[in-house]
């Protein structure tokens, strides 16, 4: 009888696991089908590539956010991190540092800002929401101080930096290629490496993970550093595309990133989640934006629709 019961549990487990995996994907396909029916231009390759490029900024930030949320935390500072690291990168390019070096410096800057979040949360014992809320305004403020409130432009004609956000490789926008590579690496780190396992363990039960010998402070600090670095990467793409670093860039980006993570089925309570889900979540948000634009829906209504989609996603997730 026992085995029969556990067999039933097992079957149920598997089924809910399947829902969890396929739910967001099905939603994405249905959404794309609906938009296509209403406006066939949506499915044109040119539009799809455009959509993917639009999605890449949010997707990159959301990938990092996935790690943070799996530990049971949150990172509200991503938008400000994006702005500050972009401004610094733009600033040093403008004074003549080679673009490739500047890009590396920008990414390290992002990781550093993320690390500060991590240390604040682990060593300072500040709740992630509060800690990153504070650094959100600090980093934004520093960006405004550094840029004196004006966009930084005039990077010259450096090919490498322009290519970053505007180039094409084999007909595919370069940001899409960067996003794909970042996804591949982070997927492996999260799901195939011990670091990812530790990340989940901390979100599942931090005290138990700590007692099992996991250096939870170090893992968490690194997780926030990853989030910062991904924000910086997204910022570089944005800066390259606009050919200027805006002091207000990335404002409210944390909300779209969190939405992508949640729609993708990652639990805000921590311990559960998948980066594939986040990718799909970002695509769903992108499809909505792109599709609603194509359909000529006013941007005011678009916000309402986006909110409704988030609620539906969360409700469906709870049903499981």
């Amino acid at each position: 009888m026992e085995t029969k019961n556990t067999a039933i549990i097992k079957k149920k487990e598997r089924r809910s696991e399947l829902y969890r995996k396929l739910g967001p994907l099905v939603a994405l396909i249905v959404l794309m089908a609906i938009v296509t029916i209403m406006n066939v231009n949506f499915i044109q390759p040119a539009n799809l590539l455009n959509l993917l490029r639009q999605v890449s900024v949010n997707a990159l930030i959301a990938f990092g956010m996935t790690f943070v949320i799996i530990t049971g935390g949150i990172d509200l500072s991503v938008g400000s991190t994006l702005a500050l690291s972009s401004a610094l990168t733009a600033g040093i390019i403008a004074v003549g540092v080679p673009p490739v070096l500047a890009i590396a410096a920008g990414l390290l800057m992002g990781a550093f800002l993320g690390m500060i979040n991590g240390l604040l949360i682990t060593k300072g014992n500040v709740a992630p929401f509060i800690g990153t809320l504070a650094t959100m305004t600090i980093y934004r403020g520093l960006t405004l101080v550094y840029t004196q409130g004006n966009p930084i432009t005039g990077f010259g004609g450096g090919f490498a930096f322009q290519f970053f956000g505007r180039g094409y490789l084999f007909g595919i926008p370069f940001p899409v290629i960067i996003t794909t590579i970042a996804f591949g690496i982070l997927f492996i780190v999260l799901h195939k490496m011990t670091f990812g396992r530790k990340t989940f363990a901390i979100g599942g039960n931090e005290q138990a993970a700590y007692i099992a010998g996991i250096k939870s402070d170090r893992v968490k600090t690194m997780v926030y550093a990853i989030s910062g670095m991904m924000s910086a990467l997204a910022g570089l793409i944005l800066t390259s595309r606009l050919n200027s670093a805006q002091p207000t860039a990335g404002t409210a980006y944390e909300l779209d990133a969190i939405a992508a993570v949640v729609i993708g089925g990652t639990s805000l309570a921590g311990g559960k989640g998948r980066i594939v889900g986040t990718l799909i979540g970002a695509l769903i948000i992108g499809t909505l934006n792109n599709g609603l634009n194509l359909l000529g829906v006013s941007s005011f209504y678009q916000q309402v629709v986006r909110g409704v989609v988030i609620i539906i996603a969360v409700l469906l997730d709870r049903k499981k």
Binding site: T194, R197, F200, G204, N205, Q207, A209, I211, A212
Partner: peptide, 19 residues
């Protein structure tokens, strides 16, 4: 509270100390 990650599979709970 401190010994197990209740939502995690048996496997991950056992292997956590021996990566």
């Amino acid at each position: 509270e401190e010994g197990l990650i209740l939502d995690f599979p048996v496997k991950d709970n056992i292997s956590i100390t021996a990566f």
